[in-house]
Amino acid sequence: MNIFRLIGDMSHLLAIILLLLKMWKTRSCAGISGKSQILFALVFASRYLDLFTSFVSVYNSVMKIFFISTSLLTVYLMYFKFRATYDSNHDTFRVEFLVIPVGGLAFLVNHEFSPLEILWTFSIYLESVAILPQLFMMSKTGEAETITSHYLFALGSYRALYILNWVYRYYFEGFFDLIAVVAGCVQTILYCDFFYLYITKVLKGKRITLPA
């Protein structure tokens, strides 16, 4: 564990809590892509199956259980409890165009051709693009609430901090995982346009609005 990974994990945790708080306080999931949230639940469910096969640390296990359970809770809130507020008309990204190619790639490019390893690889690839339905939704509506922007900033920062963690681990531990690094870079690049808007608008007290 190094400082970059710890702050990254805390940023990820903060993002999830922010999203849940936003939904709970406003009794609404307006502006949130249910498709992205389903993909995140799928990411955690397929990656953390190793909870049953290998123990790393209490921290590791607690975080995994937290991520799986909160992602399922988020999906439940969006599709059941607050369904009436879900903006499905704008959440029209075709997720099969992500899941199918990513599944194929996980079969072809992985560290080891075994079920758990392929599922882990699938989750890494899927996570890198899982935010696309959310970004697509924002480009369709042309706006994002400030709290949604904070959520996205925390969520995007997490993987950017992991890149610093991988640089650190490469130099100080000789650790290098090509699959995680490439996917993590792709993931972070997808957020760059949003990061720019966040820094130039939200941090100056304005909402994010996009030209039509």
Partner: peptide
């Protein structure tokens, strides 16, 4: 850990 993925990470 060898060539297998970054399993100690989240």
């Amino acid at each position: 850990k060898g060539a297998k993925g970054a399993k100690d990470e989240l």
